[in-house]
Nucleic acid binder design. Structure first.
Length: 605
DNA sequence: ACCATCCAGATGGCGTCG
DNA sequence: CGACGCCATCTGGATGGT
């Protein structure tokens, strides 16, 4: 419903603009711990890098640069030597695949030269359309331009074949498909293997996707193999793995990025539009997993390892809205073409709370709120703040200021009157988090429950920014499996993106939260089907398969498992991923696995 | 070394409701 | 009377940045 958008923002100020966030701009990486370049040099030699490259990197970045900066620089040199990075190389790459030069250039122009995946998709869909239109092939490449060696063929065949012993039948339909694939530049071997693996009912577009994914897998493998030196050095190999996939390396724990903006956020520099993820995770269904960024040591390594070694995207929502929220997201979504949902959230405290400006002390320099938690400040505390300030008419002494500021930061207070600091109201939290006002209000939800549920929720604008890439992919809507739904942050994000939800199967333990989602579903006049489960353990493997057959599979599996045992605020049971609630992460993995396997089977049959 | 930050759980007191 | 919701207060420590 288009009318809904009016509810997202009660502020009528249409001239709202986003100011640059000034108080903590993205800073450059810290300088670090290496004091002597000789020591650094020796370390890097030890790691197996060439003297030449080390010298070059140190010259460029200075002798005091962070070790990782140097290593990254060196790895870039070797990448540039072997892989295509220039525009002409990109063009050559696609020309080699048999696409027309004109179209390649057009696609590169439209999607950006770095955006290989998008370019490929555009070219493939264009080629499919052309092949459908014309019977006569415009370009026929007889030769296999991929120059695959014998061992590569074996590797590829191994990659493709598995338990399935299906023999390629030579029906006229399949021959047409084979021809189309050849027209698109794929070799006969690739085409027939893909057809064999995917079956005859799959569209040419899907087959092309499949082959392309296999190619990426192959490139990925090659990239991992040491191309320069054939003599394997254990240390060097370890470094390769470390450079390319820090998540999977056992000796290199995942580190939080500075600034914490993931692959980029709107209105900030540092946008990344391309990444490589393990081939096994590249195909749909898409999945999106969330949890607190500052989990105990090793937790994110474990999470990443269980989610196909995809490195988490860490984002602090303070770069998107007026409140901090440091979270990690593991997902296999494309990352190019992201856009911000409208209207954008207020970016600073003063924009989010215009009335507070009048009462905001000049010595309270906060421009962003801290993380919205499940616990709230007591009235007694705000009274103590009032008394502390009233004791000193005019400018309070430093000690009083410090006490008040510390408390305000700790409890996330805003100024609502003279000497009156106050905790956030639930509806204010809703707005800050990107929910419609009153999303959690009424309908049997107590205030305590509202606060708890909101504290546990997504920041909708952040998630919507990541999910926005789904919009062009699913114009007719998607089927969603939503685990640990809470108050429906994912659903609200999809709704705000105006991505139709054909089906939502939701799992949420709290009856109050289930009601909130149900009410939202009805109030926004959703056309799709909503099915709610209470316990994730009730969603058995058989049940998942049944639901998938009923609705035609899931396009997106989304959720954030409980963080109770991971969150820093927990005094009593911060027991890590094995904790009573947080171990439900493994249920997410189980369910995702079943969905992926079932998707494969459904695609085949 | 020092600092700020953090989707928390348990308990007891109080008022309300039946 | 008990059940329940709500409020207030108590309980440190891990983690990562500086």
């Amino acid at each position: 419903m288009a009318q809904d958008s009016a509810d997202w923002n009660s502020d009528d100020d249409l001239d709202f603009q986003i100011d640059n966030y000034q108080s903590s701009p993205p800073s450059s990486p810290p300088v670090a711990a290496v004091t002597s370049s000789d020591g650094l040099f020796a370390t890097l030699i030890d790691m197996g890098f060439s003297t030449e490259n080390i010298a070059r990197a140190i010259e460029e970045h200075g002798p005091n640069a962070d070790t990782m900066v140097i290593i990254d620089a060196i790895s870039k040199y070797s990448v540039n030597c072997e892989a295509s990075s220039s525009k002409s190389k990109t063009i050559d790459h696609f020309l080699a695949m048999g696409f027309e030069e004109e179209k390649v250039i057009k696609a590169i122009h439209e999607h950006g030269e770095d955006n290989i995946e998008e370019i490929a998709n555009a070219l493939i869909s264009s080629a499919v359309t052309d092949a459908a239109k014309e019977e006569v092939a415009p370009v026929v490449k007889e030769e296999d331009d991929f120059d695959w060696s014998e061992s590569d063929d074996e590797k590829y065949a191994n990659f493709l074949s598995s338990d399935d012993e299906r023999v390629t039948d030579s029906s006229p339909v399949n021959e047409d498909k084979l021809r189309s694939l050849k027209i698109m530049g794929f070799s006969e071997l690739e085409a027939s293997l893909a057809l064999e693996r995917c079956g005859g009912d799959v569209s040419v577009g899907d087959l092309a996707d499949f082959i392309y994914a296999a190619q990426i897998a192959r490139e990925f493998d090659e990239f991992h193999a040491d191309p320069e030196e054939q003599k394997p050095s254990v240390k060097k190999r370890r470094m390769e793995a470390r450079r390319e996939s820090r998540s999977s390396a056992d000796d290199e724990p995942i580190r939080l990025p500075i600034p914490m903006i993931g692959f980029g956020v709107p209105n900030e520099p540092g946008l990344i539009t391309q990444r490589s993820i393990p081939a096994i995770a590249q195909r749909p269904p898409y999945f999106y997993y969330e949890n607190v960024a500052l989990a105990p040591k090793g937790v994110w390594d474990t999470i990443s390892r269980h989610l196909y070694d995809i490195p988490p995207e860490f984002v602090d929502s303070k770069y998107i809205c007026a409140a901090a929220r440091k979270r990690g997201y593991v997902h296999n979504l494309p990352i190019s073409g992201r856009y911000q949902v409208q209207p954008p959230p207020k970016y600073t405290i003063s924009e989010a709370f215009p009335l507070s400006k009048k009462w905001w002390p000049s010595w309270d320099k906060r421009t962003k709120l801290n993380c919205i938690l499940t616990v709230n400040a007591s009235a007694q505390l705000t009274n103590r703040i009032r008394l502390a300030l009233e004791a000193h008419p005019g400018e309070p002494p430093e000690s009083a200021k410090k006490y008040v500021i510390d408390q305000c930061k700790k409890w996330n207070l805003v100024w609502v009157g003279k000497n009156k600091a106050a905790p956030l109201e639930p509806d204010e939290m809703e707005t800050l988090l990107g929910f419609p006002r009153n999303h959690t209000r009424g309908g049997g939800t107590s205030r305590t429950e509202r606060l708890k549920s909101l504290g546990n929720s997504f920041q909708v604008d952040t998630v919507a920014y990541h999910l926005s890439v789904l919009k062009p992919l699913f114009p007719s809507g998607i089927n969603v499996l939503s685990l640990f739904t809470g108050i429906g942050g994912a659903e609200v994000a999809l709704h705000r993106l105006q991505i139709p939800m054909k089906t939502v199967v939701s799992v949420e333990i709290s009856a109050v939260n289930r009601n909130i989602l149900k009410d939202f579903w009805e109030q926004t006049n959703q056309k799709g089907t909503l099915i709610e489960f209470a316990d994730v353990q009730d969603l058995s493997n058989e049940k998942i398969v049944e639901l998938m057959q009923r609705f035609g599979g899931f396009d997106l599996v989304i959720g954030g498992s409980p963080c109770n045992n991971l969150a820093g605020g927990n005094r009593v049971s911060r027991s890590g991923l094995e904790g009573e609630q947080s171990s439900l992460f493994f249920e997410y993995c189980r369910i995702l696995d079943v969905v992926r396997e079932t998707t494969k089977k459904m695609r085949r049959s």
